[in-house]
Design a protein around this nucleic acid. Structure first.
Lengths: 220, 220
DNA sequence: GTAGCAAGCAAGCACTCACTTGCGTGCCCG
DNA sequence: CGGGCACGCAAGTGAGTGCTTGCTTGCTAC
């Protein structure tokens, strides 16, 4: 069940599907892209639907993503690296994601492959944000779900729409830092730990750790 | 050139295209959806490509969007209304946008219809943000393009992905306010006009207008 | 009335699509 | 050597799919 051509077909099916979508990914095209006779494809997978389901299944092309540290030390740096990694990941898969989202009404089984990315990211961001909050660096009234959706949202829309509207986004190289900084500003992280109600002004400031810096714009 | 069936065909073509994409929008299906003989469709538009190009062309289903005021008075309220209107607009068109984005590599002519929405929104947000900045309510080191991309990004991804991952986003009714508030926090708008460098502390504060309030969480 | 025009209807054409059948062929393992 | 076994090749089938042709029908304007 682990024939050598099986993997070539799956990989070719992914490419062709990413380029042409479900209806455009004809069995002929896939077979040709895999350098395989069209009949082989039916013999191994039974049919087009099953073949593409196997090719697009969740985790089919998962790659390890940069992890956020358990203990935040330098939020801007850590968030920037994380955003850059996630942006790159989504950009690589942008074609296949667009096709799958476009067809999820007709073929909801395929949608899991686009769900898993954001879900993983959301969880990672959640624990990191909780850790930040544990340090008292986050404003108390922040809508956690909304701010996470906001960051993932801009990374997602950047990955999906940059080639369509290049001027809509910051330059690709600068974008991760920009998004990370805006995220940190939105949760209330400043050059000093947030002054909450009124007191504790100097209680948590320099006590439990070096306060992170977000403000300096030209820190490159 | 303004036959009565022409409009019915165009409207039907939009619906069928939004549901099935370009390849799935067969001339037979469109004709049936329009309650029109298939031949009529070819007589009027010449062919499938031209028909869909006319149906999907920019401005084909433009609707007036809530405008941002020239002079900001209550940013949270104004931004919330604006975000709600834009979110609703994108949600209505989500199917057609998904299909068009999925096929823009093969049919770039159609992509203009998805470009125009964000472009209009970006311009409106830009002038509003400039007005806010004119009041001294915005931090000086904010990356304007990034923060605009951030807001539009989360609205876009909400409209595209909410039905796929409902728990990823705040409840639909609460989302516009959440996004608007995060946007305002990201640009540095607080319950008091931002303290810039050191002086002008009380120069712009209560002079030229009532400072907007963003902080109170349970203000509903 | 009748000419013109928009639209319906039936049929068909060339082509693509997913999928099948039958058969040949090389290769590995006992 | 010989039997699976994976795969290639040629051909074909039925169902679409974009598009055309030829003809009829109803309505409106002169």
């Amino acid at each position: 069940m682990e024939s050598p051509s099986r993997d070539r077909i799956l990989e070719a099916a992914q490419r062709v599907y990413a380029e042409h979508g479900f209806r455009g990914a004809t069995t002929r095209r896939i077979a040709e892209a895999a350098g395989v006779n069209e009949v082989t494809l039916f013999r191994i997978f039974g049919g087009k639907e099953a073949l593409l389901a196997a090719a697009i299944r969740p985790g089919a092309q998962r790659q390890d993503i940069v992890a956020l540290p358990d203990e935040p030390a330098d939020p801007e740096r850590e968030m920037t690296a994380w955003v850059a990694a996630n942006l790159a990941f989504l950009r690589e898969r942008r074609s296949i994601i667009r096709k799958t989202m476009s067809e999820m009404e007709e073929r909801p089984q395929f949608a899991a492959c686009v769900r898993e990315g954001p879900q993983y990211a959301r969880e990672a961001l959640g624990v990191y944000l909780a850790a930040l909050r544990g340090h008292g660096w986050v404003d108390g009234d922040v809508d956690v779900r909304a701010v996470i959706a906001m960051l993932i949202g801009v990374v997602f829309s950047d990955a999906m729409g940059r080639e369509l509207m290049p001027d809509h986004f910051p330059p690709l190289a600068a974008a991760p830092r920009s998004y990370a900084r805006l995220f940190l500003r939105a949760i209330g992280l400043r050059e000093r730990p947030p002054k909450r109600a009124s007191k504790q002004e100097n209680e948590t400031s320099a006590a439990d750790g070096r306060p992170p810096q977000v403000r300096p714009s030209n820190s490159r």
